[in-house]
Amino acid sequence: MMSEKIAVAVDDLTVAYNYKPVLWDIDLSIPEGVLMAIVGPNGAGKSTLIKSILGIIDPIAGSVKIYGKPYSKQRDQVAYVPQKGSVDWDFPTTALDVVMMGTYGALGWIKRPGSKQKKQSLEALEKVGMLAFKNRQISQLSGGQQQRIFLARALVQNAAIYFMDEPFQGVDATTEIAIINILKELRKAGKTVIVVHHDLQTVPEYFDWVTFLNVKHIATGPVKDIFNDDNLTKTYGINYKVAVQQ
């Protein structure tokens, strides 16, 4: 199922906000073809890790390689689903328009999306079950529907590696199932999927690979091997069971 190829290699990564370290000396390698959760308490730097891998935040030390090359040379290999709350959903645009944005990277500067891009976007909308809503203004969508739109936008990028920042945050149960099914499909197609995840209870059910993170990198590996009390305690402290209940 899994090849030995390394999709993402993080080397000695240190990130600071206002000169306060939020990630310290992270070494991490993610093999190709895994469906991986990044877990850790609030403020552990989970989103920051993704953002610095994607070049949104500049690290103060260390390097990131995507299939052996810096991210700037591998953009077409990578798709990103930001946190739903990071954008203004009252923006005057439609669901289809947002999904089309996924094609902009491949288009490059100035070139406009055409019928080919539109077709790809409609397919992606269909895949997430949102085709009927393609002309809906995005503020009129429910939280779960908005999340699906974001997922469709990433699908359009047709990448090898998908980074997702809390895709299950504030979505209904149906959407959660729909999303996880799509993620599993992606893995089946040989893609690598990396998800910032909050809900520890669903980790064994959804994911096959997991990274524990709390400012420092604690452990990475197959869920069945390393998702245990020992690592949970190291990440969340002695009271981690409280965190699981949340």
């Binding site: 953009r75 944005m101 902009y104």
Partner: peptide, 13 residues
């Protein structure tokens, strides 16, 4: 850019 600045950044703009 107006809708999603970080996303624009990851696409290489």
């Amino acid at each position: 850019l107006l809708f999603d600045k970080n996303y624009a950044l990851t696409l290489g703009f």
